[in-house]
Simulated scan of single mutants.
Amino acid sequence: MARESVKARERKRAKLVAQYAKKRAELKAAGDYQALDKLPRNASPVRLHNRCKLTGRPRGYMRKFGISRVTFREMAAAGKIPGVTKASW
């Protein structure tokens, strides 16, 4: 499980990206790259990294569910994800 500080940092970045999204789009459309340089670095969407919403795990992230493969497997086995069943043939 990721440290709380790492998860908090990602949440803070996501908030900054949302806050500056409109301004970034306007500056990009105008071609004002000097003004773009003055924006905070964490306001860039490239700096975001997908993490599991429950554990904060950065690898094995499943976009459709927003959780990691490990958490997904545990929850699916426990029947906590609707519509997901274990395959058998």
Rank of each mutant, 00 (worst) to 15 (best):
L27Q: 05
R57H: 15
Y20F: 13
A77T: 05
K86Y: 10
P40A: 00
K86N: 05
S68G: 10
C52R: 04
E74N: 08
M75V: 09
V6L: 03
P45H: 04
A21N: 04
A29Y: 09
A76H: 06
K12F: 13
E10K: 01
P40K: 00
H49Y: 05
R59P: 02
W89K: 15
R13Q: 07
S68N: 09
Y33E: 12
H49G: 10
G56K: 02
Y33V: 11
E26P: 09
A78C: 06
T71A: 08
A2I: 12
R9T: 14
A14I: 07
D37Y: 11
N42L: 11
D32L: 06
G31F: 06
A29R: 12
A35I: 00
E74Q: 15
R57V: 04
A77E: 12
K80Y: 07
V70L: 07
K53M: 06
V46F: 11
P45S: 01
K15Q: 15
A21Y: 07
G60D: 03
L36N: 01
F65L: 03
E74F: 09
L27N: 01
E26I: 02
L39V: 01
M75H: 04
V46I: 13
A18T: 07
R73N: 10
K64I: 07
F65P: 04
K22E: 15
K80R: 14
R3A: 15
Y61S: 01
M62S: 07
K80H: 04
A76C: 07
Q19A: 00
G66A: 01
G79A: 02
G66Y: 01
M62R: 13
Q19H: 08
A30F: 09
S44C: 01
K15M: 12
Q34Y: 02
R63G: 11
R57N: 10
A35G: 00
K22V: 11
R3P: 09
K38H: 12
Q19S: 06
K64R: 15
R73C: 02
T85E: 14
K28M: 13
P40I: 01
G31K: 13
G79D: 06
R73S: 11
K38G: 11
V70P: 02
L39K: 03
Q19F: 04
H49I: 04
